[in-house]
Design a protein around this nucleic acid. Structure first.
Lengths: 360, 360
DNA sequence: CCGCAAAATGTAAACGGTTACATTCGGGGT
DNA sequence: ACCCCGAATGTAACCGTTTACATTTTGCGG
């Protein structure tokens, strides 16, 4: 068996970095005292404290985070896992979380561009020991399926995903869609087409639900007015052709997101159909571009930074207390009226009577 | 003096997390062997290795990053410090770095929204022990002034900042501006106004330099054609009034960035001046909106993701070798011709002869 | 069989903090 | 004086890895 060999003390050269021991030695106190002074929680004589602080500053001492993390088992860092990191939407989420977390003394570790669920799981595992909590956004995939594979049990809050085991912050997609539909209805539109988002996307599903609810209330609601899409401009562009071919032609189109609405707008411009005179068009998200297209797009605005802020607040609570009380929060939306929707030039076709008022 | 008190072993309850000791015990080997298997560098008998791997997997063992970081003194993480985290530009930079770094097994720690230099210095210090290297973007302030205050000596690469002590990746602002100016000149424009960016912004300065260089070559170059701006839409909007008041009126405007060009476009739309028939307009950056405004904006495109990619490459080298060989890299730009610039309707005023051909 | 180098594995000291517990110090009460 | 008690400070175990060096095993020629 290995027996006492010479102490290896100082065998490794220290990397030049100042440690708490250096400060302690220089100040003529123990490391414990230095630690106490720096963390400020315990009793230390005023004079000792001043002394230590002075030495620490003169030595430019900065605590080693890894060591502290190992010791107290928390890193003062939260992880953010997103499907993408670019684009107005995601960067705004990051910004919201960054602002809130930094105010609370937390750093953020970001990871994006996860094409598939397995890659995301790997990333989530890799965060262990690095972060105290996670904000995860995985609208397209059911993280639920993979949850059991997670090696850790970190506090975690989900954005725009349905999950019954973790607190969730969602956008009020359903309410927003209803708001827009009611706006359209108030302009006299009854025959309103809808360009859907991806099948498995939670946001898309809720928006569709809102659309259908109002359509039923208006007495419509046939599936022939719903068209497939995948949130891309291309999909919006492509959806226009079958929509205008419909007879009677819809008087308005509600696209599940702005990108598709913008694509549709391009298609209308090409085909010479005038928006909003001949066709009203609405989107969802209020991305910056919505303001610049011609005509400017009427859409539903979402306070994305607020989404990030709330996400952090809930996560902070979960990290503090062990688990959050609030299980689900919802971010409200606002109707942004611009120029892409006009009063319906109705009367050209029979007005369908309201069959039943099955509003929920 | 404190003498041997009872060993505190197991006094603290372990947080349920599986450690390397658990794996070692279960596999009937020492922690050293487990570590060797997992890191795969040293000699371990095939069978032992298989055995350990099996146990590790069944126990869902994930190494504690903090401990490893403390031990080997590297975190496999790089820090990114930006003035902002939102907006197309910054998120695209993050994306570029994220992609490159993840491919190399690194995580990224992001921090943005630093209003002043001191805050940024604090952040840089707080990164110590957390990251192995830094990518810093501080175009507006001279980090140089504050460098001495940095407690650490981390490998670091700067984006769009001038600094002679660290490797720097910059956008070819000067070349891009010259390219645009030459394009404008080739369309027959000689009297070209320029809307400047912030005084202390490095990008803005270089673009101005490119503008001036070509103007001199064209025989112009008086300061009366330069207008103040700060990269905001508002500034672009406001600059239009004095520009059109000029006599003779310029035939083209080159805005130091797209946002200002977009603002100018709005002003022209309001005042009924037609772009590009009566006035050509060009921007810089090729932000997404440039494609959607009416008319679509002619501008200079920059491969921002490439900027991030290269930044990581240089940083990786610096972290590897201790210091980088390349001190400065430049990201090229491309001319993006759209519809906002037309041939000059010259002849309405005297064509100034080319005084000297001082092209560099 | 033995000896011996090479291969495989084990032992325990770092890494740089935090903190439980021990120790010392400094009055006030009796 | 002496004792006691709280405040201030010191000591060293511990967090979970990596790894230098020690030790044990293995394989093989003599």
């Amino acid at each position: 068996m290995a027996r006492q060999h010479e102490p290896l003390r100082y065998r490794r050269r220290r990397g030049g970095a100042v440690t708490i021991h250096d400060v302690a030695a220089r100040a003529g106190v123990s490391v414990a005292t230095v630690s106490r002074v720096l963390n400020g929680k315990e009793l230390v004589r005023e004079e000792t404290s001043r002394q230590v602080l002075e030495v620490a500053k003169s030595l430019r001492y900065v605590p080693n985070v890894a060591a502290r993390t190992l010791s107290i088992r928390r890193s003062q860092t939260i992880g953010i896992v997103l499907p993408e990191v670019h684009g107005e939407f995601f960067s705004e989420v990051i910004r919201g979380i960054d602002l809130a977390s930094r105010a609370a003394g937390y750093h953020i570790l970001v990871s994006g561009s996860h094409s598939d669920a397995n890659e995301m799981i790997d990333m989530l595992d890799a965060m262990r020991g690095r972060v105290d909590g996670l904000v995860v956004m995985a609208p397209d995939l059911t993280l639920t399926t993979y949850r059991e594979q997670l090696a850790h049990k970190l506090p975690m809050v989900l954005l725009n995903s349905d999950d019954e085991r973790h607190p969730t912050i969602t956008i009020d997609n359903y309410g927003g869609a209803r708001t827009m539909m009611k706006h359209l209805a108030s302009l006299g539109h009854k025959r309103i087409a809808f360009i859907k988002g991806p099948e498995q996307n939670a946001d898309a599903r809720e928006r569709l639900r809102g659309y259908r609810q109002v359509m039923r209330a208006l007495g419509g609601g046939s599936r022939e007015l719903e068209f497939d899409g995948d949130f891309t401009e291309r999909a919006g562009y492509d959806a226009v052709k079958p929509i205008v071919a419909l007879s009677p032609r819809p008087t308005a189109i509600f696209a599940a997101n702005d990108s598709m609405a913008v694509g549709a707008l391009a298609a209308f411009a090409e085909s010479g159909i005038e928006v909003p005179r001949e066709m009203s068009l609405a989107g969802f998200d209020d991305i910056p571009i919505a303001h610049y297209v011609n005509p400017p797009l009427t859409t539903i605005g979402v306070d994305i930074a607020e989404l990030g802020r709330r996400a952090f607040a809930v996560l902070a609570e979960a990290m503090e207390k062990g688990s959050s009380t609030r299980r689900e929060e919802c971010i409200g939306t606002t109707l942004v009226v611009r120029k892409s929707c006009a009063v319906s030039n109705s009367g050209t076709y029979k007005t369908r009577g309201r069959k039943k008022g099955e509003g929920s």
